[in-house]
Nucleic acid binder design. Structure first.
Lengths: 263, 263
DNA sequence: CACCGCGAGAATACATTATTCAAATATCAC
DNA sequence: GTGATATTTGAATAATGTATTCTCGCGGTG
């Protein structure tokens, strides 16, 4: 801060050229970054040596020192302006869309971590490890997540299939037994048929694991192990996107657990 | 953020002297402020020209540019992170496995947000929007991510297919043209066949979008648009899991962009 | 009018940075 | 292993950038 302030303060007691330099720097602080002493001199219309003397008169060893000092204070002040929301300085560049998304995801991940008991996750992991066959089914909005989970389970050597379509789901569920697991993944709506499948499966002694929206929705009520995601407060499309992020976090939690227990 | 991250990410693929330089800079970031290329060279024990070449290899015009960039990111990062070494209290319960995982993911997401230029992401989004057909192909470790992306694209009404198996990839790529897009997703190794496919496709005028490990790996070199994930510093399984988290973040970034531009 | 005092720029000395080139080293195919 | 080929390295040097010196011109003053 000191540096630019100094210039403004001294402006009155400066010579013509010095004032020209000071004014230019105050007006074009950020441009200075890429200027050499010669370039600055040309732009302002003075000689290179004047630039150096100006730097020294302000108390710096030379032009590079001034430049750095200016840049420093510029960075500091422009930082203070952007810091708005308080304690959320987690993604450095607020202009980057990936950072913005990351910030929102962070909230979802925190909520997801907070809402699920460690025991539930452990139980889910145990159920997956103990299962002979795993049927994965999802409501329309969560198909992508279901496919992701299914493939990861296959990679880990689990006998997992993603079953699409109400009728096929019913039929496959019919062939499951006590050693098997049904995994229901669901976000907003469209879960009615899944509830039927889950009920049916439970009658056959199949364990049911659900990954649903908090709080108890139709599908989770009929499950043995419940994992949840808390919906974010956003417009619909973004809410769905973030919800899937939460689901994926649960999936990753499961995979991570399966990996470490394996060792 | 980009600058120091770049160094950490490239560390593995650096020569001995380059690594010495990178390590010194990472450990003594703030000292760099007052070092000339010669001083730095002396302290680290290499020649001055090596310092310059190191700077250029990282993509800067020369040593002063690197120095400024380092200083810039140093100022940015030190903004909120009082204590380094990771674990600030962002996930409430440190005993909960989902929180632990979340903490690690947070780091990956930050890095992913930092390493990718906003322009690259925008270009990728534009390419997807403009494409007639999209072929998605992946190395073995990233199949799950590829499937996730493919399904999301389908949901958005894009003509996307996930193509598995080198021969089929080649054949499908043959049928693509200038209006189409090939999307390569890759983590560690197993990308050789993908490179061939990418080259082939480019000869036909197909645009190639890659989602790979930083820095330029075999697949990304042959791409028109490059998105990156920085590998985390963990044991192999966890590293792969976290890498996929980073890839998914990019995918979500793309989806998010496609959603908002649509409106 | 001669004599300072001061600010400015040209010339130049000095410092730093970038490039070139040859030797050393690592990498790969056989 | 062995030879061919690329990479990496540092000494020398060119190019660029920065600081100093010195001189000139201008306004005030005795």
């Amino acid at each position: 801060m000191t540096c630019l302030l100094k210039m403004r303060a001294m402006r009155d007691q400066m010579s013509v050229n010095e004032r020209k330099l000071a004014d230019f720097i105050l007006d074009n602080t950020k441009l200075l970054r890429d200027y050499s002493s010669q370039q600055l001199a040309d732009v302002v219309g003075v000689s290179q040596s004047s630039v150096v003397k100006f730097s020294q008169k302000l108390g710096y060893k030379g032009y590079p020192s001034l430049k750095l000092a200016v840049y420093e204070t510029y960075a500091e002040t422009s930082r203070g302006q952007s810091g708005q929301g308080g304690g959320d300085g987690h993604f450095a560049q607020p202009d980057n869309p990936l950072s913005q998304l990351g910030q929102k995801k962070l909230e979802v991940l925190e909520n997801t971590a907070g809402i699920n008991e460690a025991e539930s996750l452990a139980a889910a992991i145990a159920a997956i490890r103990g299962a002979r066959c795993i049927q994965v089914s999802a409501c329309p909005g969560s198909v992508a997540v279901a496919k992701y989970l299914t493939y990861q389970l296959l990679e880990l050597g689990c006998w997992a299939v993603f079953v699409e379509g109400a009728q096929v789901q019913q039929r496959i569920a019919n062939s499951l037994g006590e050693e098997d697991l049904l995994c229901i993944i669901c976000d907003f709506g469209g879960e009615e048929s899944l509830v039927d499948v889950a009920n049916h499966a439970r009658e056959l002694g199949v364990k049911v694991l659900s990954l649903t929206r908090y709080n108890y929705n139709a599908a989770s009520i009929h499950s043995d192990i419940r994992l949840f995601v808390v919906p974010a407060d956003e417009d619909e499309d973004m809410q769905r996107l973030l919800f899937r992020s939460g689901q994926l976090h649960l999936v990753e939690g499961l995979v991570s657990g399966l990996l470490t227990q394996e060792a």
